[in-house]
Design a protein around this nucleic acid. Structure first.
Lengths: 236, 236
DNA sequence: AGCGCACTACGTACGGTGTACGTAACTAAT
DNA sequence: ATTAGTTACGTACACCGTACGTAGTGCGCT
């Protein structure tokens, strides 16, 4: 009888293929690809064990031979798309390089809108994540700082990008999924907000809302915020 | 017959009490408090409509009179604990004040470890969130910047704190929940990581791991990172 | 005063989820 | 050839969110 999930931790630690029984019908890559396909097409919530198994053309429980828990399936997915990170020869300008890294991460998340929800530093040690980390460190070679500081910078940058893109995506998705129209939703929200602000309890918010009427250039905000973060690290 | 969820958006827009029928048995605050109690005691996953209803001593479906969708229950929870934010008279030193805000947010999230998972800027307009925002703006009065920049700063700070605390909590929770021992888990992870790093494909990672042997002072890291972010905004 | 209606309350039911467990087929090592 | 470890997968369980129907309640209007 199989060990059935008694093994600890990291899925990457166990060999993909055990020597003994009949040869597996799928690779981890197959499974990850199918899960990613589903998530891209129908959203993360559509990624269920049954659904993925059906997509692969096998029984639901067969999946558990490859993936001990659903969490591990998520980990496979994150690793799979992390492979899309394009790596390049560092230019020597670490700030520019890190900006480029951030931009790529952002593009990655836009291609796979479910990524931010799964991004957690706990998943930080998959093979492709290691490649990515090494690449970041290479870009940071010219930076005069300890590895500790560099890790802080990388974690920070990832965190900021994740948070930022998550906002973008979540609001967009929420608007798309709601049954009533976007205008109706926005009208209700604005009416409520206006009412609250008009109460006089929030004078600064009130002032800000009369002031900031124009639409905001998200692209510019993104770049500016990142520049600031990098600036914070450069000065030290 | 009741309207049954055909109303759009924000739960805060609809009045807590309608004039017509029998008076509701609970307030939103009651419901939020119960949900928070459960989440604190048994984790966010234990917060189900059935569970909350049982805790309140009413039928499951009765909850839907107060809370159109589960997402709104989450929104109530976030607002409820946001009330714990202590507000003070700004000191005039906006960097110090914002550091204090961040520290409080962190404490809040440690008291309610499920908070980071629910924190999303989409929930940014609950009554207590507005209070919090106004307070931040008050702290930022001495800062020479547009409201746009100030909002960017606040969002950024929240994002960083959330990301940071989420790491702390998620890793802790993961370790606590796993059936095998922490040492075994860490041993497996380290063995795997060591093997990967020893392959020679990640020279910088290898160097970093031989170097950074000591335990890291999370408190110091937290403060340092925040200082950097604030520094990035101060210089502009 | 009394009618009607908007509201509360709540049981039932449906379609979904993750996954524990039992069983049968298969193959590599002994 | 035997056997032990693996793969495959169907069944079953305990949960989830919530659509819907129905009964009771009391405010607002006529």
């Amino acid at each position: 009888m199989a060990v059935r999930g008694a093994e600890p931790g990291v899925i990457w630690a166990r060999p993909e293929r055990a020597g003994r029984g009949p040869k597996p019908a799928f690779t981890r890559a197959d499974i990850a690809a199918e899960a990613v396909r589903i998530a891209d097409a129908e959203g993360l919530d559509a990624v269920s064990m049954r659904h993925v198994a059906a997509g692969l053309g096998c029984g639901t429980m067969s999946l558990y031979n490859y993936v001990p828990r659903k969490e591990d399936l998520y980990e496979l997915m994150v690793d799979a798309v992390s492979a899309e990170h394009e790596l390049w020869e560092p230019t020597g300008d670490w700030r520019a390089d890190m900006m480029r890294v951030a931009g790529q991460t952002r593009e990655l998340m836009r291609r796979h809108p479910w990524l931010p929800r799964l991004m957690s530093p706990v998943y930080g040690f998959s093979p492709h994540a290691l490649r990515y980390l090494e690449h970041c460190l290479a870009c940071l070679d010219p930076m005069d700082a300890s590895y500790g500081t560099k890790f802080e910078l990388i974690a920070m940058l990832n965190g900021v990008v994740t948070t930022y893109v998550r906002n973008e995506i979540d609001s967009a998705e929420r608007v798309r999924n709601l049954p009533w129209s976007e205008e109706r939703e926005q009208a209700v929200r604005l009416a409520y907000l206006g009412g609250q602000v008009a109460s006089g309890v929030y004078p600064r918010l009130a002032e800000a809302f009369t002031q900031d009427a124009g639409p905001i250039d998200m692209e510019a905000v993104f770049r500016r915020v990142l520049e600031r973060v990098l600036g914070g690290f450069a000065s030290s």
